[in-house]
């Protein structure tokens, strides 16, 4: 079990929307996409410990790490005290990198402790992000530990990913995961590039690989009316989705603009009507197991 710690932006004890049943969700800090529509942009970049946020904190929850500590490396590290923090988010506004000093650092052993504390209440664990697979060693070690612990191995282990992980990367995870939820952010390469800053070649490879291994739990389509190209490319999209194994869930998500900091702030939110229209077009073309949002907020 590696000693290195994962950088984590948030942990949710009880989620109903991140895989089957009740789930403990670990949001890992850092993402290799730079989506225009990202509503948690502070989770994209890692903190570089510039310290600009320290003086801005009204609750004195941010400070430099104690110099007297034996490890010299941490002298220049920004430390966040979660107990003192009032979540006013002033630090996020101050940060020149649009990152956050508010991250937790967990070793696999520490995370297992937290999972054990909650194990009565959950059906499994989901790693999300940011992009969880950027911290591949951590999630692999965590899931391996869960799957080999007699008291935890009944928990399902799921990955929520943008699909950018390489095939070798997936192969490392494959023995320890029960499934993955993959975002397909646009159909056309150009659209994908415009929205995320990355091409989607690897996304399709990830989808194919996971489907072949029976580990593709869900494909997620974030619908941004007038921006994403699902409606324009409906024939090709429907054709593709139908070729996936029947068990794969097709989840339609509705874009909402809160938290967004780019031009996408001014894009229209996706309404129930928009989703229903897209769903109807997919259904008409034979796409099954569609799942629509429970809420539009």
């Amino acid at each position: 079990m590696p000693d290195s710690k994962a950088s984590i932006s948030k942990i949710i004890n009880f989620s109903c929307v991140d895989g089957p049943g009740s789930r403990l969700v670990i949001f890992l800090q850092g993402c290799n996409y730079n989506c225009l529509n990202c509503h948690n942009p502070q989770t994209i970049d890692l903190c570089d410990n510039c310290g600009d946020c320290i003086s801005s904190c009204p609750a004195q929850a941010l400070s430099w790490a104690d110099d007297s500590a034996s490890n010299n490396n941490i002298a220049n590290t920004v430390v966040w005290d979660a107990d003192l923090c009032t979540q006013c988010d002033t630090c996020l506004q101050v940060c020149p990198k649009q990152s956050t000093p508010k991250t937790y650092h967990y070793s696999v052993a520490e995370m297992l402790q937290l999972i054990r504390k909650n194990s009565l209440f959950i059906n499994g664990i989901t790693v999300s992000g940011g992009e969880a697979t950027l911290q591949l060693n951590f999630i692999k070690s965590l899931f391996e530990a869960v799957k080999t612990a007699p008291d935890l191995q009944h928990l399902t282990c799921m990955v929520d990913s943008n699909g950018s992980l390489s095939e070798t990367g997936w192969q490392k995870l494959m023995p320890f995961i029960d499934g993955a939820m993959i975002d397909l952010k646009a159909w056309q390469q150009a659209t994908h590039l415009w929205i995320t800053g990355r091409d989607h070649h690897r996304v399709f490879r990830s989808l194919a690989l996971l489907a072949a291994e029976h580990k593709l739990y869900e494909v997620r389509l974030l619908h941004i009316p007038g921006k994403t190209d699902f409606e324009g490319e409906i024939e090709a999209l429907a054709d593709y989705l139908q070729q996936l194994p029947a068990a794969v869930r097709i989840k339609l998500n509705a874009f909402q603009n809160h938290g967004v900091t780019t031009e996408a702030k001014n894009w229209n939110s996706c309404t129930e009507q928009d989703i229903n229209r897209l769903a109807a077009q997919l259904t008409d073309r034979g796409v099954k197991s569609l799942f629509l949002p429970a809420v539009y907020i």
């Binding site: 109903c16 929307v17 009740s22 009565l120 959950i122 809420v295």
Partner: peptide
């Protein structure tokens, strides 16, 4: 109070309930 996303995932409610009674 459970937010309404649980409506499409009753298994989550079931597990939460089992956990509570167990504890």
């Amino acid at each position: 109070t459970i937010d309404e996303t649980v409506k499409s995932n009753p298994l989550a409610m079931y597990q939460l309930c089992k956990g509570a009674l167990n504890l």
